[in-house]
Write a protein that binds this DNA or RNA. Structure first.
Lengths: 344, 344
DNA sequence: GTTAGCACTCGATTATCGTGAGTGCTAATA
DNA sequence: TATTAGCACTCACGATAATCGAGTGCTAAC
């Protein structure tokens, strides 16, 4: 659906204005703001057209108009151009990362911090996941009696704990032996392909030990499949300052979103036509709680493999320009630092 | 400050009523509710006295009265009697715990869940801490190049990860050796007393290895001292249903409290005259954000050692009776299950 | 096609006025 | 002397009305 240049310009100004003020914008205010030399009356006609086309609505007969979701979508697709961040801000961010890239956890929370600070919305960051495929090494540590800790280490050097209770007592020495057996396996095959048959072929195990390995492997598989990434979120209260969030119900929705980490995680990692910056506006979101919000996300990578995701949740009246610029730059920074961090 | 029986009774009824309704209570309503055969006029006189004594205030000249913080304190200390929970609820809780006591993490979140459900307030649970004193075993796991993971295991069978970057590359074999050295130490001494001198006395180390041990020990000590317990919280949105939380600022305060995990953790573990159930009302809380809330906490133990804490945050107009009963029972359950869980 | 002019709409703000639940005080009562 | 009935008074709250003003759509002139 193409709009002529003037309609496009008018729509742009309306959206920009509404994003800033959250007030319906009327023809008079508009004619002052955009210097097209058009009178309010003309603008009214154009606005009526834009309303017919589904880009604007009037909250009340005698008030200005506000953009619809369709308008935001049009804005994002056809009007907005993602700017490079200001140099000063870029260097600030860069320095910040340098100060926080010693460990993975702190880097993640720092990212969330920076995101929410720069955008004034709520930020969410997903840490890298540990999966079947990148599992390099498993260390079994005896905890107490028949409880053990399985530490899974990935090729990238991330670690994850899995605690289980086994049928027999496991002491330090046995734990070491079990670790060695499993790691012997991992040299040749990935975890998800470790079958019962393969385990039975191991020579050096006593029947008891073999039984333990049979117990351990499914636990490992299950934990790595089920595992949701760690989710860091910040700036929940940022949104409270916007007038649309004076409603307690909206706040409830937001809190529910941030707490449903599993859902959040799936949503953010589902690929969307390989776009670098993914924008979901209002009801474009599948999640019921997100219908009144917009969410902009991106991902970070290591060696071309997607490691995790991060993004920003805000009102549909979101500053899409700024957020896109910020995500874009943070993405680069993250790619850089994560590779330094994990592979160095 | 002693009150005569009638004043005490009147104060009690007022508090109970206000806790239920959040409405100022007047003399007429009151005379119907408490069957003391006293006329509203008499009650008015008594109420005026109670106001002079600081137990009641009037929001407006011509409205009923509401209890002050001092009144709640009096109620909690002198009036309230903690009841045993109903048998049905007790068995419900007990069964719930049986279904969730396989691992420490799930038990903690389950506790938070149950607490917030039974009280309709916001629940907070602190998981057991790993400290210098209960550290039994350290396993060093090579991550990648010069990054290692230190897994600290406590006497009770809990584990904690600490990730560090060292000055030299550490492979699997070296990691094992370093683990053995440190564990040899731990047989005789606690971590905080491991000095440089002691390390230097170890025979079997090459200079490089010795250097690594010198790097590792401070990291361990630091992590165990700084470590705040894991904090589980649930039912944040429970409070939104109470009229006093229609104000967005109160909600902000609440969220800030729950997010300042460090503060929360310190507050809940600071002993308070060895009371089993600790009640802090409004400004009795040191934390600025908590001034408008009440918080009731308790602790759970293992072999007489305090392991962690749990509690409930709500309005000052909190149902102190019910919450106390619930905490009391949950405390017993937790003591029971934690010991099964960790020592079994 | 654009614009000035005009009547009209309607949400928001302010003002006014009862209503009623509550109070404090006083005088009568047990 | 403690209690109570009676009464005048207070004040938040809700409903109703009046005003305001930013905004609209329509028509006619440019």
């Amino acid at each position: 659906m193409e709009l002529n240049a003037r309609k496009k310009k008018i729509l742009e100004v309306i959206i920009r204005d509404y994003i800033n003020t959250a007030e319906p914008v009327g023809s008079r205010t508009l004619s002052k703001r955009c210097n097209l030399g058009i009178s309010p009356a003309t603008i009214r006609n154009e606005m009526a057209d834009l309303e017919d086309l589904g880009y604007l609505v009037q909250p009340h007969t005698s008030s200005g108009r506000i953009p619809t979701q369709q308008a935001y979508r049009y804005y994002v697709d056809e009007i907005m151009e993602v700017q490079k961040l200001e140099k000063m801000i870029r260097t600030d961010i860069h320095r910040g990362f340098l100060d926080h890239n010693t460990e993975l956890g702190p880097t993640m929370s720092h990212t969330a911090q920076v995101l929410s600070q720069l955008t004034n919305y709520t930020a969410v960051v997903l840490a890298p996941r540990v999966t079947n495929f990148n599992c390099k090494h498993v260390q079994i540590v005896s905890l107490i009696k028949n409880r053990v800790l399985m530490v899974v280490v990935t090729q990238e050097g991330m670690a994850k704990n899995i605690e289980v209770t086994l049928s027999q007592e496991v002491d330090t020495i046995l734990a070491l032996k079990l670790s060695n057996v499993i790691n012997g396996f991992l040299k040749n095959t990935i975890l998800s392909e470790m079958s019962s048959d393969l385990i039975d072929q191991i020579q050096e195990l006593t029947p008891e030990e073999s039984k333990l390995v049979h117990e351990i492997i499914p636990h490992l598989k299950k934990a790595l499949v089920e595992d949701a990434s760690e989710v860091h979120s910040t700036g929940l209260t940022n949104l409270f300052n916007y007038p649309e969030f004076s409603d307690v119900n909206k706040i409830k929705q937001l809190i529910n979103i941030v707490q449903e980490k599993q859902v959040l995680s799936e949503m953010m990692t589902s690929s969307d036509g390989n776009r670098v910056i993914r924008i979901k506006i209002g009801s474009e979101n599948d999640n019921e709680n997100l219908k009144d919000f917009s969410i902009i996300t991106s991902t970070y990578e290591l060696d071309g493999e997607m490691m995790g995701a991060f993004g920003v949740i805000g009102p549909t009246r979101m500053n899409y320009d700024n957020v896109s610029s910020v995500l874009n730059y943070i993405r680069n920074e993250l790619n850089l630092h994560i590779s330094n961090l994990l592979m160095k």
